[in-house]
């Protein structure tokens, strides 16, 4: 394994290995909660909290967790932090509890978090894992905010709830629904791939790295997971 500086680890998470735009991980919450910038931001920050804490915890416990039962162990650790994040939001940001709804507990099965646990935190030092968690979380947050800005502007003509003059162009309401989210994400992924020039093959390898089932999967690392 090539040793990377901490700055490089952090930047990788934000740009070159951006979980959403480059690796296409964690698509479900991204298309569902980004109808407004603010809910995208809160979702991204909860992800940041969970991936940072679970990375640190898993890295600290990496010699204690037996490798055969590591997947359930990671699930319990991640689920605990997800529960903490969920109740913090219920207590301090109750308005977002309804808009994020079921997608907050669903962070447990988010492959972006799992990918960092399995692919990074389980074999790196605590500090490096924390830096990686910060980078991944910040990258995911930025991607969600970007998606939220595009969708809110196109769908309701506002950004952060502030009306933006769009001239004669009327808001296109469909951007606020799931199809609009899928479309926005598709275009953003294409732009990101153009900018970072990563081919589909590279992407597939990374998806397997993040898949919680990869340990049990006969096609691990080769692609074609569903066959």
């Amino acid at each position: 394994m090539i040793r990377k500086s901490r700055k490089q680890i952090f930047l990788d998470g934000i740009i070159f290995e951006n979980p959403l735009l480059v690796l296409a991980m964690g698509i479900c919450p991204a298309v569902s909660v980004t109808a407004r910038v603010s809910s995208g931001l809160v979702m991204g920050l909860s992800m940041l909290f969970v991936v940072l804490c679970s990375n640190v915890m898993i890295s600290a416990l990496k010699r204690i967790i037996p490798s055969r039962v590591r997947i359930p162990c990671y699930m319990v650790i991640i689920a605990s932090f997800v529960t903490i994040a969920r109740y913090l939001i219920t207590a301090y940001l109750p308005a977002f509890e309804t808009s994020l709804g079921v997608y907050l507990p669903l962070m447990v099965v988010n492959c972006a978090i799992f990918g960092r646990a399995e692919g990074f935190a389980s074999r790196n030092s605590i500090i490096n894992s924390a830096v990686d968690g910060l980078g991944t979380g910040a990258g995911y947050t930025m991607a969600l905010v970007l998606m939220g800005a595009v969708r809110e502007l196109a769908g309701s003509g506002t950004v952060f709830g502030i009306p933006v003059p769009t001239g004669p162009v009327k808001p296109i309401t469909v951007f606020l629904f799931t199809p609009g989210g899928l479309f926005t994400l598709g275009v953003l992924i294409a732009i990101a791939r153009k900018l970072t020039s990563k081919g589909p093959a590279e992407e597939q390898k990374k998806i397997c790295l993040g898949c919680p089932a990869s340990a049990a999967c006969p096609m691990n690392g080769k692609g074609g997971c569903e066959r």
């Binding site: 199809p179 899928l182 479309f183 598709g186 992924i189 294409a190």
Partner: peptide, 19 residues
Amino acid sequence: PESFRGTASYLIAASIMGL
């Protein structure tokens, strides 16, 4: 186009199906 291959084009196809 090359940059739309794979996930990006699937997402856009799924979006049209969602409509």
